[in-house]
């Protein structure tokens, strides 16, 4: 009998822990959804200001679609490898998890470097955010996404250090799940930047 009772206690503890983790991850999801409102505001500003070039370059003259396509591929692949990292973590394979996070980090960093070098090229040719309303809204929207990517990369470095130090316990796993949600979310935002800013921009919509 006492064995059964103690087992019941263990079960209840597990359920309580599971509930708490589920709530934490749900709370993080709610944060991501409110972050969408930030991006929606910036998308709205971009949509309104996109033709206000004030004699400066238009989207058609500025963007190189092949270059943006390479950026997009880097980010999309990194979203996939972040998923593989989560899968490895759930299977308690420390080396696999670190490897896939390493790949995700490298691809994310590639994306960020490509984006920043494009920004600096625009600024160097005189097309900075001060040039026109179109460029102000472009830099703010794409720059905010880039800032999220930079924070995600920092988080990923810290996460890898945690995994090295503490292994894949329940707490680490919970955080990995939130990190992978964050990273997939950033790729989802990029779908709309890619379509609305770059594809529509090149078409001259």
């Amino acid at each position: 009998m006492s064995e059964a009772v103690s087992e019941l206690k263990v079960t209840n503890k597990l359920i309580a822990k599971y509930d708490k983790d589920t709530k934490t991850i749900f709370g993080f999801w709610v944060y991501l959804m409110t972050d969408c409102v930030l991006f929606a505001s910036l998308f709205a500003v971009f949509a309104v200001l996109r033709h206000n070039t004030y004699g400066g370059p238009t989207a058609q003259g500025l963007f190189n679609l092949n270059y943006v396509m390479i950026e997009t591929m880097a980010l999309l692949t990194s979203s996939f490898t972040a998923g593989l990292a989560l899968l490895s973590a759930q299977r308690k394979r420390v080396k696999h998890t670190l490897f896939w996070f390493g790949v995700t980090f490298t691809l994310g960093l590639t994306f960020l470097i490509l984006e920043l070098s494009e920004f600096s090229r625009f600024v160097a040719q005189g097309d900075s955010w001060r040039r026109s309303g179109f460029l102000s809204s472009y830099f703010t929207l794409v720059g905010t996404h880039g800032l999220h990517i930079a924070i995600g990369l920092l988080w990923m470095l810290i996460m890898m250090a945690f995994i090295l130090k503490r292994g894949l316990n329940d707490t680490t796993l919970k955080r990995i799940r939130m990190l992978s949600l964050f990273w997939h979310f950033l790729d989802v935002v990029w779908i709309f930047i890619f379509t609305i800013v770059y594809l529509f921009g090149v078409l001259g919509v």
Partner: peptide, 26 residues
């Protein structure tokens, strides 16, 4: 929730849709 199959489906589908949009525009 997460399985390898799902990630492969999501990745392949996204690749096809992204390349479709890019090629159509270009």
């Amino acid at each position: 929730e997460a399985t390898l199959k799902k990630y492969v489906i999501g990745f392949t589908g996204s690749l096809v849709l992204t390349f479709g949009a890019y090629l159509l525009t270009q």
